[in-house]
Amino acid sequence: MIDLIPFILEHLVIVLVATGISVVIGIVLGIVAYWLRFTAQPILWFSEAVQTIPALALLAILMILFGLGNTTIIAGLTLYALLPIVRNTHTGLISVPAAIKDAARGMGMSKLQRLFRVELPLAFPLVFSGIKISVVNSLSIAVMGVLIGAGGLGYPIYRGIQTQNLRQIMSGAIPVMIMAILFDFLMSAIERRLTKHAK
């Protein structure tokens, strides 16, 4: 039996780093799609297209660019996580009620002030639920990292498969499941608090 703690920690770090990058890029893309309406279709189409690539193929392509190791799996997860965040940011921004946008403009807010003081705060609950979806997805996809030489809980699972050891497989899989459930639970709770005043 191997010590799981380092694998769990590394798995978490990979997922969180990827989500962090994805949040930044995703929100920026969502804002661009909102501000420049003609870019909305291409941006959404791109993020959707990325998701349709099978994970194995995507990782193989990225491996050519980034080589073996954690960088490649982080890049892959970042791309996968993009869609829910971009889509929810864009949807959240366009669904801020017209009256509130009108009021913000009428009060004399500049475009940036409108975005940061009114539109993003109101869109944030939806953005956050996009982030939640991304994190939960990434936790399970990150297991694939072992195929391109990355760390995380993929390794014990892979070892288990090779040695046909079910207990070994489960010892890697169960922590992934627990983390996914835990994140889902915690982030859903935060989500509910966020939507409290957004009426």
Binding site: A99, I100, A103, G106, M107, G108, V118, L122, A198
Partner: peptide
């Protein structure tokens, strides 16, 4: 200009956040 003119709209448009 807008900052120097008060504006009240029908739908109230208070910022809920």
């Amino acid at each position: 200009l807008r900052r120097s003119i008060g504006y009240v709209i029908q739908q109230i448009g208070l910022f809920p956040n």
